[in-house]
């Protein structure tokens, strides 16, 4: 039987993992935002982004959200919903794909550990 003390310890570990992964993920997204700027000509336009987004997503800090969207498109395309539905992508380099998958998985882990921490906090 798991007691409260053990749940608390699990929660603390999850919290530290979430914070550490979170900082790493956002740092990776920040660095990739420079590398992925080259896809702006291809993707940062109608119909994928409206006029207001095309202006705002060019600069920090909102450019980070744009990079996150590119990362999702280059890794788990099915989860980009309607936004990039008919987007025609060129053949992506292997490092772009690997980096996108890595950051995507890291972001999912942040969301999973964060959610688990939140649930444990509510239980405790």
């Amino acid at each position: 039987m798991i007691d409260n003390k053990m749940l608390f310890d699990i929660m603390m570990v999850l919290l530290f993992v979430c914070a550490l992964l979170g900082v790493s993920t956002w740092s990776a997204i920040f660095l990739l935002s420079f590398y992925f700027k080259r896809f702006d000509n291809l993707l940062l336009k109608s119909p994928y982004f409206n006029e207001s987004e095309q202006i705002n997503y060019k600069e920090f800090p909102l450019s980070q959200y744009k990079t996150l969207m590119y990362i999702s498109l280059f890794s788990f395309r099915s989860m980009t919903g309607k936004r990039f539905k008919d987007a025609q992508l060129p053949e992506l380099e292997t490092n772009v794909v690997i980096l996108s998958y890595t950051v995507s998985i890291m972001s999912f882990l942040v969301l999973a550990t964060g959610l688990a921490t939140l649930i444990l906090l509510l239980i405790l």
């Binding site: 979430c18 914070a19 992964l21 979170g22 900082v23 993920t25 956002w26 980070q64 959200y65 996150l68 969207m69 999702s72 989860m79 980009t80 919903g81 936004r83 972001s107 942040v110 969301l111 964060g114 959610l115």
Partner: peptide, 14 residues
């Protein structure tokens, strides 16, 4: 902050 930021990012995407 990291968790909610990513959540907001994916919400904007979806």
């Amino acid at each position: 902050g990291a968790f909610l930021g990513l959540g907001a990012g994916y919400s904007l995407l979806l």
